[in-house]
Amino acid sequence: MASIFTKIVNGEIPSYKVAETDKFLAFLDVNPNSKGHTLCIPKQEVDKIFDLEENTYVELMQFSRRVALALRKTVDCKRIGMSVIGLEVPHVHVHLIPLRTMSDATFQTKDKVSPEEMQQLAEAIANNL
């Protein structure tokens, strides 16, 4: 069965896209730790990051870096944190989280962001790529 992220890649589920290439997709997390929390995924459905082909892993990190730099230009924060946990969705994903405090990185607190704000934010990040 396809993961929720594969359904996003296939256009079956809407998302707030930030960046896309033929191999990767970046979109805003709909349940963000902080405003701007972005997920970077390979379009190929692979469960665990270290099961990616080495070149795909490196390319995912390069793609994530590019998105993180745009995110840093867009969202007021001290830094962009990166986390790869992957227990909740069996599809490789890199969390890029704008950090103002350490609690932004804990996955315990969530920001409320309206759909309108999400759309504006996705467009603003994309414009900073």
Rank of each mutant, 00 (worst) to 15 (best):
E59L: 12
K112E: 11
A2H: 12
T56Q: 12
P115S: 07
T74P: 05
V89Q: 03
R72K: 15
T101I: 10
S114R: 13
L39F: 06
L71C: 01
E116C: 05
T6F: 00
A126K: 11
L39R: 03
K110T: 15
K73R: 08
A126N: 11
I80E: 01
K17P: 06
N33T: 08
E116I: 09
S15F: 00
S83R: 14
S34Y: 13
E53I: 03
V92R: 05
K7H: 05
C40V: 12
C40Y: 04
L69D: 08
N33H: 08
P90Y: 04
I49M: 09
I13N: 00
I125T: 05
E123R: 15
M118E: 04
L52I: 05
M102A: 10
K78P: 00
I4M: 00
T38G: 02
N128S: 08
M118V: 00
V18Q: 04
L87S: 01
H91R: 06
V94E: 00
D22C: 02
E12G: 03
V46P: 02
V75D: 09
V9N: 03
V92L: 04
R65F: 15
T101R: 12
P98A: 12
S114G: 10
E53T: 03
A26S: 06
D111Q: 15
V67F: 09
V113K: 13
D29Y: 04
N127G: 15
C40T: 08
N33E: 04
I41A: 00
F5K: 02
C77V: 09
A26W: 07
H91P: 02
P98V: 13
I97P: 02
R65G: 08
N128E: 09
S103Y: 11
R72P: 14
T6A: 12
A122L: 13
I4Q: 03
Q44C: 06
E117A: 14
L87V: 13
L28H: 06
C40N: 01
I80M: 02
K23D: 03
V92H: 08
Q119R: 15
T38N: 07
D47R: 15
A70V: 03
Q119Y: 10
V18R: 05
C77Y: 12
F107R: 02
V89H: 02
D51F: 13
